[in-house]
Structures are given as C-alpha cells and as structure tokens.
Design a binder for these strands. Structure first.
Lengths: 105, 105
DNA sequence: AAAACATATTGACTTTTTTCGATTTGATGA
DNA sequence: TCATCAAATCGAAAAAAGTCAATATGTTTT
C-alpha cells in the first residue's frame, strides 16, 4: 500500500511555475538564495516558501555556509522521483482481469 | 525555453491523493468511470473533474463506448512524463560556472 | 417518443496554496 | 557589543484547486 500524501509531495515540486523556474536555474549548478531571488519576480519570503517545498520533495538539497544557503538539485532525490513515477504509471499487464468487465454482454 | 505551464500540467496528475488512488486502480488495467466511482468516496462530478485533469496531463487516456467511458494509463504519456522529469532534474555538469560564485573571497 | 442511464458542465462553497509585509532568528563584521 | 545582512517564520489577504448538488448532454432501451 502506498502513502499517497508522501507520493504527492514529491511531484508538488513540479506543479508550480515559479518552482519550475527555480529548478531551471539550479540545472546550471548550485545557487545561493540571493541569486535565485535576483532572477525571480517574487518576495524573499515567497522564495523561502518555495525552497521549503522543493527540499521537502527531496528534489532539491540545501547547504548552509555562514549566513548563506546554497541550493542544488539532488541526484538521489531525482532518481527516487523517476523510480516513483515508474511505479505510479506502470500498469501491470500480467494481471488477470486487466480489462474492466463491468458491462460485458 | 520550456513552457512551464505545460510542464506543470503533466505533474498535476500526481499531486492529489484522489488522483493517485485512481491511478492505483488503473494500474490494474482499463476501468470505466462507474467502477472508479464505486471505489472512491467522492461525488460523480468530482470524479469527472479529476478524470479531466488526468487526461489533460496525458497520463490517462479515455475511450468512449456507448454511454460508458473507459479510462486507462497511457504508456506514451507515461514515457513522455518520465522523459520530462529527466530533463527537469538533469543538472548540466558540463556547464561552465556550474557553482555559484556570488560570495567568493 | 419517452424514460432511463452515464458522464460532463455549471455555479456556489470550502479548503489549500501562493503571496506579501513585518518580524524573528542566526551569523558576520565593525 | 551593536549594527548589518541572509534566510526563516508568522499572520493576513488573494488566488487556485477541490468539492458537491443541480442541471445539461448524449446514448441506449422500452
């Protein structure tokens, strides 16, 4: 039995346009929050909120260095998401009763 | 340049617990709406709403047969989602300036 | 043609998410 | 120590998503 809330949390990372834009920036490598903020039309508190969601999903990891926080895409988290997507969409063709028979003649 | 709204639409399929439960049922093979409805604690109009989002994402396809509609997981849509996820999380390690240098000494 | 049925659409309401400004926390530098 | 800066948290407002009952649409059956 799967934990739907936990599964949903992973994909929330990709369901908001600002977060997709953040990921786009992180694809170029690790960035600190201030650089991300500079390139987005959102407030500091909103960025912090999105970074929390991205980190909670496991797709992004953060690293503190002094007063700065650096963010990057987690290879491990990305791999887990890919595997999860596989599970969620892999329809089991070996199963008996694979086709709905609720209205057969 | 990516279309963030379109990319987000794909992953919306996996961001709601009812939709994850629907996908879980469809993993066992094609199902008609009435069977899905029987196994969910939601109204008919809410199911219809979720099926629209699932179809819009490309993860699910529908097939009409008389007055019934049958839904199933789209292999093609699932593959596209997997490829998209790859793109969105593939940080480009070949790039120059891969590490944020905004606060170097 | 009318009744019955399955699904989609509409409109209103509720819940969740996003957003911001203000404040707090925690680290650095003067 | 005190001022400064980066990021997180809080509380409120706005926007978006989920929900349902009622109704509409389209198909089948009588």
């Amino acid at each position: 039995m799967r934990d739907h809330a936990a599964d949903a949390r992973v994909f929330k990372a990709f369901c908001d346009e600002n977060r997709l834009q953040i990921l786009e920036m992180l694809r170029g490598g690790e960035k600190c929050a201030c650089i991300l903020l500079e390139n987005l039309q959102i407030s500091q508190s909103t960025l912090s909120h999105h970074m929390k969601i991205l980190c909670d999903s496991g797709i992004v990891v953060s690293r503190k260095e002094g007063k700065w926080t650096y963010y990057s895409i987690s290879e491990e988290g990305s791999l887990m998401a890919a595997e999860l997507l596989q599970v969620l969409t892999n329809s089991n063709h070996d199963m008996v009763n694979n086709v709905c028979s609720c209205h057969e003649k």
